[in-house]
Write a protein that binds this DNA or RNA. Sequence first.
DNA 1: GGACCTCTTTCCGCTCTGTGGAAAATGAGT
DNA 2: ACTCATTTTCCACAGAGCGGAAAGAGGTCC
Lengths: 246, 246
Amino acid sequence: MSNSTTVQSVDRAIAILEILAREGDSRVTDLATELDVHKSTASRLLAALEHGGLVEQSGDRGRYRLGFGVIRLAGAATAQLDLAKESRPICLRLAETVGETVNIAVPRDGDAVNISQVRGPAAISGHNWVGQRTPSHATSSGKVLLAYGALRVLAELERYTPRTITSPDGLGLDEIRERGWASTVEELELGLNAVAAPIRGRDGSVVAAVSASGPSYRLTPQRLPEVAARLVEAAREISQRLGYYR
Amino acid sequence: MSNSTTVQSVDRAIAILEILAREGDSRVTDLATELDVHKSTASRLLAALEHGGLVEQSGDRGRYRLGFGVIRLAGAATAQLDLAKESRPICLRLAETVGETVNIAVPRDGDAVNISQVRGPAAISGHNWVGQRTPSHATSSGKVLLAYGALRVLAELERYTPRTITSPDGLGLDEIRERGWASTVEELELGLNAVAAPIRGRDGSVVAAVSASGPSYRLTPQRLPEVAARLVEAAREISQRLGYYR
DNA sequence: GGACCTCTTTCCGCTCTGTGGAAAATGAGT
DNA sequence: ACTCATTTTCCACAGAGCGGAAAGAGGTCC
């Protein structure tokens, strides 16, 4: 990744943000001087940044400072960095203990999206799920997110295997909440089983799910409760690291 | 300020930040689709944002998320918004009480820079100081920032009037710290007097000064201690609002 | 209130920067 | 090792961004 594949006006806009962070309130002319660009260029870049909420005018016309949009972005960044960072060591340990692939999934636009993965030690292990959207009703993470209200149940549930549950009532969301974990037995793919538990954010709402998945010859239905207990404990620990105390 | 005076590539870069805030981890192709631009355009915009620290790659090549630079900018934005917002009502009241122009000044590159102002009710009042850099040794705010270590004393101090103090030892910084306020008597301009007190941030360090200034026929040397007492009280109140408890 | 000054914003012609298409590079899966 | 999908880099070209100038806006002074 070299400097030749960048965008000069974006570089300049970012430089404006840096100057405002360092200097506070600044005028168009001062920013133009410091950037070594024409005043109208500085004014136009500031207009774009203001339109995006990253800078705002501080009362007097022509005086600019960083805007609230920056704080909003940082809030999202902090939350995302926290979940990835805090879950990593726990997932590494869990994959060793359970012997299967461990994933973290978050709710996104009606699907469960896997944001990280640690493979188990077995020679035969499943897909790379990172970044993949998975249907909520046919995955254990998805069912957790549905059961705790982080995702909405659709009226029509698509079939992936003969064992996919296609009726909303058949998902057993009440039982999942009561039990504290969800599982799937060859509902997404033949030969693939999984089990998941809910991760809570600071305010107690379920923000993600931690799951273990593996081939059905290894992760048998008989084994699911034992693995679930470990996932529930891991989810509790991750939740605490995110600031949830109960 | 219309949409016609913006910069398309900056708009696109900001849109990428918004998508990452909403979606979390995203791939180049997904961002390109959502932005309705070519993949190479998305890749190049991300490269610029990554170079500026606002996004980072989340382990896997081609997967991007918001970066730490966003959190850093937000930290600066929060600090700046707090000082302006919290000091405003207090300065409004103070200008009425004291009857003179009230300013807040912060240390910037060796000078005291005025970031806000409330004019007193008098018909004759001074300059608009907002945004103006003032020499630290010849202004009351500057002397406060020097006395409490927020600014450094220069070896050579420029003369503005016959009354300007041009020797570093003559500034009386020890006395200012002991007294808790600083003043100037026609040291920056003939006929202009001022007095200032220190504002502390959350960690107790002096981050700004609140001052009152006016014509020397009104703000006489005899009146300075009384006005100073009100400024010290106002500074204490602003400091508390910024999170300083002592 | 008018004149003057300084700064910001908007307009416009021009050129150079950003774009999209294609090729090269890269990484995952079998 | 091969295949495939995705990302990154390269390059020609045109249109987006630039700087200069004019218009707009606000403050100061008389």
